[in-house]
């Protein structure tokens, strides 16, 4: 079995936003209203003179126990055996319960207007025909072709790494197993599959 996961190393993310742009172009998201499948936040942290700047990329965590899926009334949200949580645009009625349920703010809406703008913006190549909720798919269409997710492929800091938790030789799996890379808000019980390597430890 394959269980996909992403590790994000905050030590080498430079906040370049290449992942945002790559994802938008790959997945034809509604950039015209500033909606993305992934965001990179730019935060000032620390107190007093001990001040740091942290870049914090985020995306759907492809939870093993996804509340967005359990609330979805139509079955539009579904989970693949490899752990990827997806939305079927034909089934989704756009009630947004999934957005309410997601603790990671990972969902965005694509409205009728967006579909129309999308047709203009992405032209003939626009793939969507219905409005629906949208979210990161771990670029499963690329995985099928043996490629990495668009954001991972282009990450200039190699901060984003992608792998298979079920493969003990996969560096991503090892980082997760060793506890170097840890999930966000595990107490919520969502069992996320995006893991982060802390950047403050190194600075001591």
């Amino acid at each position: 079995m394959t269980r996909y996961a992403m590790v994000i190393d905050l030590n080498t993310c430079v906040g370049c936003n290449a992942c945002m742009a790559a994802c938008a172009m790959e997945n034809q998201t509604p950039v015209w209203k500033n909606k993305w499948r992934t965001y990179v936040h730019d935060k000032e942290i620390g107190s007093g003179e001990d001040v740091h700047r942290r870049f914090f990329p985020r995306l759907c965590n492809h939870c093993d126990n996804p509340p967005c899926l359990s609330v979805c009334p139509t079955g539009a949200t579904y989970k693949l055996d490899n752990g990827i949580v997806k939305v079927d645009e034909a089934l989704c009625m756009g009630c947004r319960a999934c957005a309410m349920a997601c603790p990671y703010d990972a969902r965005l809406e694509v409205t009728h207007d967006d579909v129309e703008t999308g047709r203009e913006f992405y032209g003939e190549a626009y793939r969507r025909s219905r409005p629906s909720m949208d979210k990161c798919t771990f670029c499963d269409h690329r995985l099928e072709q043996g490629l990495q997710p668009a954001c991972v492929e282009t990450c200039v800091g190699s901060a984003r790494q992608f792998g298979d938790l079920d493969d003990p030789n996969d560096p991503v799996a090892q980082m997760v197993a060793r506890g170097v890379a840890r999930p966000l808000m595990p107490h919520l019980g969502t069992r996320p599959n995006v893991y982060y390597i802390d950047d403050l430890k190194r600075r001591g």
């Binding site: 009334p73 409205t111 909720m133």
Partner: peptide
């Protein structure tokens, strides 16, 4: 709820 759906047609599924 209905008029705020992104895709009211798909309400048929529920």
């Amino acid at each position: 709820l209905f008029i705020h759906l992104l895709d009211p047609l798909a309400v048929l599924h529920v």
